[in-house]
């Protein structure tokens, strides 16, 4: 099939950037979306032009590196699918496809479609962990975990940190990402001692990074390629309310 692509080109962080139109012909429906971009880039290089920079790595939907806004949808039209797993059979001959980077102040554009998502790492560093220095762990079976809690924790832990939630959110909020980690750790007995300091630390880091506030719209969960449920945000809110009330810091509470 033959396609028209309109791709965001931006030389560097300081450049203003613009949409540029390219024609790509003979695209096989068996190609992945990124392979289609590979084909374009091969051609651009041989024509003496700069290839389009885009982030990608594992190309099997788990590393979270790929990050394309395709026709106004994070990771494109197929639900539960990252851009690297999206295949061209989802499009039709003659389509025009707009490709843009994630847009958020907290994710500044590095070049073309590549953005800097370091803000997510900072949120994790501010509390998204359980303090368990190597060697200090008790025997694994000393603390049983109810299966339903373990399963729900896993569901939240499946987040790949791609940032689609932020890209899709009308408020540019990263609350689903933050809530997924808060939920995972607060559902496990190992996560209890730091439960309330964690949520405060992470939400503060989220706000400091320049993400917008959450208004419970739900675009994030609709865009999430891993199906992180929206109710994780409720869990975060509950923990946050408890943490900000005086009781949470009181011994024995």
């Amino acid at each position: 099939m033959n396609l028209t692509l309109r791709i965001w080109r931006q030389r560097g962080p300081e450049d203003k950037g613009r949409m540029v139109t390219y024609q790509v012909d003979d695209v096989s429906p068996d190609m992945s979306f990124l392979e289609m971009l590979d084909v374009l880039n091969e051609r651009l290089i041989l024509q003496g032009e700069e290839p389009v920079a885009f982030d990608h790595d594992c190309r099997e939907g788990i590393c979270g590196m790929c990050s394309l806004m395709i026709n106004g949808e994070a990771h494109g039209p197929q639900r539960g699918t990252t851009a690297c797993q999206l295949h061209m059979r989802q499009f039709s001959d003659g389509d025009t496809i707009d490709i843009e980077p994630w847009r958020a102040r907290a994710f500044p554009v590095v070049k073309d479609l590549v953005v800097n998502r370091n803000a997510f790492d900072k949120i994790i560093a501010a509390g998204g962990y359980i303090t368990a220095p190597t060697g200090s762990a008790p025997e694994a079976h000393s603390v049983p975990v109810a299966k339903n809690n373990a399963d729900a924790a896993f569901e939240s832990a499946a987040c790949i940190g791609c940032g689609a939630c932020v890209a899709a959110c009308p408020n540019g909020s990263g609350m689903l990402f933050t809530a997924a980690k808060v939920t995972q750790l607060s559902l496990l007995p190992q996560g209890q001692p730091e439960r309330y300091t964690r949520v405060i630390g992470m939400v503060d880091a989220h706000d400091e990074a320049g993400f917008g506030g959450c208004t419970n719209i739900g675009e994030c969960a609709a865009a999430c390629p891993k199906g992180i449920p929206l109710n994780t945000i409720g869990r975060l809110n509950r923990d946050y309310l408890k943490a900000t009330s005086k009781r949470a810091g009181t011994p024995g509470s």
Partner: peptide, 17 residues
């Protein structure tokens, strides 16, 4: 929200919810 997305999308975001 406005500050969190200083550059808007060229292609209007699709609304799912």
């Amino acid at each position: 929200a406005h500050a969190a997305r200083p550059v808007p999308y060229a292609h209007r975001r699709k609304i799912h919810v």
